[in-house]
């Protein structure tokens, strides 16, 4: 364990003891081109044989999943915003995002839900309404609190720098669940164990793309070497900013953030908390040495109190 194993920038696989680890792999989820089709949610369920979450109508726009749970490892968030609620200016982010089509090709109609016949209003002036969509997933943190606190060794760091639960080891102690600063990992009720995204460990080892990225029709979910994804994301956010989408920003890309950077990071069009993400997550184990120290001092005080009580009086 290196000196900054609990906090700060780090390459996690070599730190976990892998020699000759392959490059760190991850996701860049560009929400500016997400169309809310939920193909990622479905592909993930299919590939990983995840049980259903029940049939719920939540009344939260098109989101009837609710959040990441033991049975939903990708979750598409839908936020409906009138222009007044926007974080940034009045530029149409989705129209701007549509301009990233490869040269020579026109942006295609991809089946966005609308209130008129498909295609008829495609050229109509945009209203003051915008729809944010974002496919959320486990962040595969550089400093993963879930992994740090797991008492069985069930959670482990893979050679790709990702974080995976071993279902044959997990005893359902539940510690990882409140430890995750993003509220990702969760207990499956009828099963007792903890489950979350594996970044398709069983696919990427064979050179395949994770199921969600494979299914995503707009390349909102991009899979690849983390270094490459980070530079791609930097260019993308610059391009959007130049086009006037001032509210475009990256989230989880920075190795100097509270979790040492996420293996799965995002381009967002509003503040993180609007999407249900913590604005400034910090891995809880950053403070663990200080916690042990405090507990040690309190323990010594206990011992002193006992000595005083038994020796410090006549009765």
């Amino acid at each position: 364990m290196g000196s900054n194993s609990l906090y700060g920038p780090l390459d996690p696989a070599p730190d976990a003891g892998y020699t000759d680890a392959p490059p760190r792999m991850g996701f860049f989820t560009d929400t500016s081109v997400c169309i809310g089709c939920k193909a990622c949610e479905v592909a993930c369920k299919e590939w990983n044989l995840i049980p259903d979450d029940g049939f719920n109508l939540l009344g939260t726009s098109y989101d009837n999943t609710g959040g990441l749970t033991a049975n939903s490892w990708r979750h598409v968030a839908f936020i409906e915003q009138p222009a007044a609620n926007r974080g940034g200016g009045t530029v149409d982010a989705l129209a701007a995002a549509a301009t990233i089509a490869p040269p020579g090709r026109q942006p295609e109609f991809l089946g966005m839900p609308m209130s008129d016949l498909p295609g008829r209003t495609i050229d109509a002036p945009r209203s003051d309404f915008r729809w944010l969509m974002m496919s959320n997933v486990c962040k595969h943190c550089t400093h993963a609190a879930c992994l740090d606190v797991c008492p069985t060794g069930s959670l482990f760091r893979t050679e790709f720098g990702t974080v995976v639960v071993q279902e044959d080891i997990c005893n359902g102690c539940g510690y990882c669940i409140p430890a995750c600063p993003y509220g990702v990992i969760d207990q499956r009720k009828d099963d007792g164990r903890a489950w979350k995204c594996t970044l398709c460990y069983d696919r990427i080892g064979d050179g395949l793309m994770p199921a969600c990225a494979t299914a995503c029709p707009t390349q909102s979910i991009q899979y690849g070497e983390l270094d490459e994804l980070r530079s791609r994301a930097r260019h993308r956010v610059e391009a959007l900013q130049e086009q006037g989408v001032t509210e475009a920003r990256l989230y989880g890309h920075d190795p100097d953030d509270g979790v040492g950077g996420d293996g799965a990071f995002f381009l967002l069009l509003d503040e993180p908390e609007v999407y249900g993400l913590p604005p400034d997550p910090v891995v809880t184990t950053r403070d663990l040495p200080a916690m042990w120290k405090r507990a040690g001092v309190a323990g010594l005080a206990m011992a002193a109190a006992v000595v005083v009580s038994f020796l410090g009086g006549r009765s």
């Binding site: 939260t60 609710g66 959040g67 968030a77 936020i79 539940g174 669940i177 409140p178 995750c180 600063p181 993003y182 509220g183 990702v184 990992i185 969760d186 207990q187 908390e273 609007v274 999407y275 249900g276 993400l277 913590p278």
Partner: peptide
């Protein structure tokens, strides 16, 4: 996000 919790409550 619709008043939903960000972190998961302990199970």
């Amino acid at each position: 996000y619709y008043g939903r919790p960000v972190v998961k409550a302990p199970v």
